[in-house]
Design a protein around this nucleic acid. Structure first.
Length: 1009
RNA sequence: GCGAGAGUGGCGGAAUUGGCAGACGCGCGGGACUUAGGAUCCCGUGCCGCAAGGCGUGAGGGUUCGAGUCCCUCCUCUCGCACCA
């Protein structure tokens, strides 16, 4: 039976298709928006229907013509916008305020777009379309972040040049993005791999190379802010007397410098990685192991800007979480540096803690430490050096040499992963040497241990086991003395320490013949002891950062070449600006060697610049291009400069920046750093690039129900299942059994209490959750298929209707159908469906709205406008739905209301709205039509319904005049029959009347009868 | 462990400053139109209850005439950081 039905349908469809195609030839342009012949509409529409929807929606009726044919409509208006350059943004329009709305540009992967991309893009597009109608000159560009590892890895795997794959991927991304009808100014499209783009990336690098940071320079910027510290031209760097090698002196102080540094080498990826790209000792991309090795690398001195990067977070309107992450990443901590003299130096005689001058670098006989708790100095009972610390070799005593060497060797083999991931059991070795605690003058043993990191502070610590958890654990393990020097109160000065007491408190047992901290609170104690140390040249206030300088070179092919020449004599020279861009040489073999020599070394002719200079063969990391792309959009075709300064001043800062939270500390910190360096050099007009930042939440796959089954087929309740690393297992009785996950359809699951269980067996709990979309899970939703089945407008609408933009939320195909139905209802509200051609529904008439209609229209305009301004697109859409629900019930639909609705709909579903706008008799695109207005008087009700409560419980409702006073409302409430009967015989102790809100009678429980 | 955020129907989610909990959509139930309906339209739908009514915003306590919203304690989940001295 079903089969026959199908056959019928198919034959009907194919006859339509035949008819369509014969007409097709005679009509000049089926997609021509201007050529929407009213008579041709039917044929055209059915042609599209039969062709493209037959598979997915074949059973949907199309006899009631013309239904909502999104494919015809969307193709038509995309072509219209493109042909008319509707969204081309003039550099400047007199009288129009500017608005710069930026999306994080995508990395064009081979996978194509996923539904997460259009989430942020739709949000910004809605806002841009809205603001254009509000009279703003809106800059809304798009481009491609196309250098980087994945393209190269893919190219290596497939044996195609990355230039080819990149071009193909960009074309595909552009096609997909354009299919969603975003109002980008495509004339401003940029591509970071375009030599005309990366020429300027190299140019900015040269600026960084030409800049040194003067931390004490106090200056006032154009906004009148006083700033301490400035990046200044290297030519202004003062060269001290007695410096012969000016070149080396300068090179060591540039913002871009070469240094031999221990780096994160990832053999699998064949490149070094920045600290930010290493997670738990593994590469962020791919999760490959990373080892530390010393290499000569390009570094960017981001640490010079650490303070300003933190302070200037005050200037921007960003989510608190992102600001916290950045602050955390910079990791500023204030404390003191303290010098501990080695005890061996003492043998020569003299006072080890005699008054002396503080030296910039500690001498051989001194271990310098950084501490945030100088107030606990009296409790330092031993010291620990990082295994890599330079002094270890020298101070280790002969009898400890072997053990120390073994420990250092073992530590060097450990990857960062081993050092952090393994249980926090402390290991270490005693060096045999002692240092002198400058406060107690006691000799204290010096250990090495890998819980002290060479990369932070001075690579050495004073260990205060009484007041630091790590030191406590170490002291317990190795039997080192633990001394209390802080107590919660004075009477606890001698109470034993069962664990480290790390909070602030009162200093105890902290005095010698020249200083006493006893009785001071922690803050005072810090100040006092720091002053005492400074006075003796033994210490000083100090600030430390977790932030490291940015490792900026990669041993890869697909990146920007450095505009740098290396001399035979080891000198470094920049390429002349006029020689930019330094083109990436064509290489047939661009595979990484697996060793730290970059593939560019294979371009022998390219490398050889002259007899005495060869080119730098490292390339820049992927972040380089994205650090400044927002500036290039402003002036994308400028051949003379990266951007015109007047234009920069006019457009910057970016007013709204929308993208994923995964860039919280990488891209967003790096680009702020570049922007500040450019600012210091007078190249940008403000200190911060992005004023308001919004992170869209991740879109998860559809909610899945998972049950668990043992290998013998027995079902196991989900709360017994645990993941013990290797795989899933369940505890049944006393036995541990391997289990497997099986997918359960939602109709076989019911809710019981707060858990889901199998409908067939309530004792078997089932996991219900949405997972991240991934290829392996097979839950990835392809926007192309959504566009094909439901149209771009439906996709856009659903992306916004799912929930708040910032929230993580699961995808739902049913939800897409829901908004698709809404668009269909909107269409049928305006378009006559009983005719064969596309024409206005006769109920849409040029008449005055009724008071009710005027009220609904005004409310919809007011509500939707407010919601769009606040980026609450989900509730804005629900208000449009309410409008449609109301107006489809009206037999007469005033054109003015219908037009207002169409304009309100247009930012969300622009294709459909343009089509309706044309149908309503307008010749031009609605893109610049003024946003609908309303008379506020329609928002005010003449009568309102007020809830009446008795003892806080809703007992009735009364309708009263809107402006009625308290007494009037109370009388009305008392007169409500139901309320009156409930109040009968009871004593009203109090009547709370909130005009316009509610009435609450407080009555005594017992009635005095 | 530290930091941030979030827990509301079967599901996604609404709910100015404390003032009618559950807008809107999905799903589900019923009906209409139909040869047919996975189209469309109409009605219903937090839970318990025949009803009257009662109970309901993770749990417990508090403030208040009144708490999803404010305060305290706890639980769960998500994200970020994680031996940073």
């Amino acid at each position: 039976m079903a089969g026959r039905m199908c056959l019928n349908l198919l034959s009907r469809e194919s006859s339509f298709a035949r008819r369509g195609s014969s007409r097709d030839r005679s009509s000049s342009r089926p997609n021509s928006p201007s050529g929407l012949s009213r008579a041709g509409g039917l044929v055209e529409a059915s042609l599209y229907y039969a062709r493209s929807q037959s598979k997915s929606l074949s059973k949907r009726c199309f006899l009631a013509m013309p239904a909502y044919h999104f494919q015809r409509i969307e193709a038509k208006w995309r072509a219209y916008w493109e042909r008319n350059k509707t969204f081309r943004t003039p550099d400047y329009v007199p009288g129009k305020p500017k608005l710069y709305v930026l999306d994080m540009f995508p990395y064009p992967s081979g996978e194509g777009l996923h539904v997460g991309h259009p989430e942020g893009y739709t949000a910004t597009d809605i806002l841009c379309r809205y603001k254009r109608m509000r009279g703003y000159n809106v800059l809304h560009p798009m481009g491609w972040d196309a250098f980087g590892l994945p393209a190269e890895q893919y190219a290596v795997r497939m044996g195609v040049h990355p230039r080819e794959t990149t071009r193909k991927n960009i074309d595909n991304f552009r096609r997909q993005i354009q299919s969603l009808g975003f109002s980008y100014d495509w004339d401003r499209e940029i591509d970071t791999t375009d030599p005309e783009y990366y020429r300027w990336t190299q140019w900015i690098f040269l600026k960084l190379f030409d800049t040194w940071y003067d931390p004490d320079f106090v200056w006032t910027d154009e906004a009148g802010r006083t700033i301490r510290g400035k990046g200044r031209p290297i030519a202004e760097l003062p060269i001290p007397e007695g410096v012969d090698d000016v070149h080396s002196y300068r090179d060591a102080r540039r913002l871009a410098y070469r240094a031999q540094a221990p780096v994160n080498w990832c053999p699998e990826l064949g490149t070094v990685l920045a600290n930010e790209e290493v997670i738990d000792g593994k590469s962020e991309i791919g999760g490959h192991p990373v080892v530390r090795m010393p290499l000569n690398q390009w570094m960017l001195r981001i640490t010079a800007y650490a303070d300003r990067l933190v302070e200037d977070l005050e200037l921007v309107d960003w989510p608190r979480a992102i600001k916290d992450m950045q602050r955390n990443w910079v990791g500023k901590s204030e404390g003191a540096e303290v010098d501990f003299p080695l005890a061996e130096g003492n043998r020569a005689g003299g006072n080890p803690v005699a008054r002396r001058e503080w030296s910039a670098t500690p001498d051989d006989g001194t271990i310098r430490v950084f501490t945030t708790r100088p107030d606990t100095l009296f409790g330092a009972t031993y010291m620990v050096l990082a295994p890599e610390h330079a002094l270890v070799e020298r101070i280790t005593t002969a009898d400890r040499r072997e053990a120390i060497a073994a420990y250092r060797h073992a530590a060097s083999l450990k990857s960062d992963l081993d050092r952090t991931d393994l249980s926090r059991t402390k290991t270490g070795e005693f060096t045999g040497a002692y240092a002198i605690n400058p406060t107690t003058r006691e000799p204290i043993p010096i250990w090495i241990a890998d819980y002290v990191l060479m990369g932070y502070g001075t690579g050495a610590i004073m260990a205060v086991p009484g007041h630091d958890e790590r030191d406590f654990a170490f002291a317990i393990k190795f039997g080192l003395p633990i001394r209390r020097v802080v107590a919660a109160s004075l009477d606890q000065a001698d109470s034993p320490l069962g664990a480290a007491f790390v909070e602030a408190g009162i200093a105890v047992h902290s005095s010698n013949d020249s200083v006493s901290l006893n009785g001071m609170d922690t803050n005072d104690a810090k100040r006092s002891i720091t002053a005492w140390l400074a006075d003796r040249g033994l210490g000083r206030k100090a600030v430390n950062y977790k932030l490291r300088d940015w490792l900026f070179s990669r041993q890869r092919y697909w990146g920007e070449p450095f505009p740098i020449l290396l001399g035979e004599d080891g000198s470094i020279r920049s390429v002349d600006e006029t020689e930019l861009p330094v083109l990436l040489p064509d290489l047939a073999d661009f595979k990484p060697s697996g060793r730290p020599e970059p593939p560019l070394g294979k371009a022998v002719d390219w490398v050889r610049y002259s007899d005495s200079y060869r080119r730098e063969t490292n390339t820049m990391p992927q972040w380089a291009g994205s650090c400044w792309y927002y500036l290039r959009y402003i002036d994308p075709h400028n051949l003379e400069a990266p951007w015109d300064k007047t234009l920069e001043n006019q457009w910057m800062p970016v007013d709204l920046y929308v993208g994923g939270a995964e860039h919280a500390v990488l891209h967003l910190l790096y680009s702020r750093f570049w922007h500040k360096a450019l600012y210091d050099r007078g190249l940008t007009s403000g200190p911060e690039p992005f004023h308001k930042l919004v992170n869209q939440g991740m879109i998860l796959g559809e909610t899945e129900y998972t049950a668990y089954r043992t290998e013998s087929g027995k079902l196991v309740s989900a709360d017994c299942v645990e993941d013990l690393g290797g795989g899933l297992s369940a505890r049944i009785g006393s036995e541990q059994t391997i289990v497997h996950a099986i997918k359960v359809e939602s109709e076989h699951v019911i809710k019981q209490g707060d858990a889901f269980v199998l409908a067939s067996d309530g004792s078997i709990k089932v996991d219900a959750r949405a997972h991240k979309m991934s290829k392996t899970r097979g839950n990835v939703v392809n926007p192309d298929s959504v566009v094909k089945d439901f149209g771009a407008d439906s996709l856009r609408l659903f992306e916004m209707f799912m929930g708040p933009l910032e929230a993580v939320k699961p995808w739902s195909m049913k939800g897409v159908e829901g908004v698709y139905r809404f668009l269909g209802r909107a269409w049928r509200m305006i378009v006559a469906i009983e005719h064969e051609d596309v024409r206005l529904d006769p109920r849409v008439q040029n008449v005055e709205p009724t008071p009710l209609q005027a009220k609904i229209t005004a409310r919809t305009i007011a509500g939707a406008t407010e919601d769009i301004e606040a980026m609450r697109f989900n509730t804005a859409i629900s208000k449009l739905m309410e409008f449609v629900n109301a107006f489809t019930g009206f037999e007469i639909r005033p054109k003015s209301s219908i037009e207002a609705f169409t304009l309100l709909l247009s930012p969300f579903a622009p294709h459909l709205a343009e089509e309706l706008w044309e149908l309503l008799g307008h010749q031009q695109s609605l893109a610049y039509e003024p946003w609908p207005d309303y008379d506020p008087k329609h928002l005010i009700d003449e009568t309102i319904e007020i809830p009446v409560q008795i003892n806080g419980k809703l007992r009735g409702r009364v309708v009263v005049a809107a402006g009625l006073d308290r007494e009037g409302i109370e009388i009305a409430a008392r007169n409500d029959p139901r309320v009156a009967s409930l109040l009968d015989g009871k004593t009203v102790k109090k009547a709370i009347v909130v005009p316009g809100k509610l009435v609450n009678f407080v009555v005594s429980e017992a009635s005095p009868e």
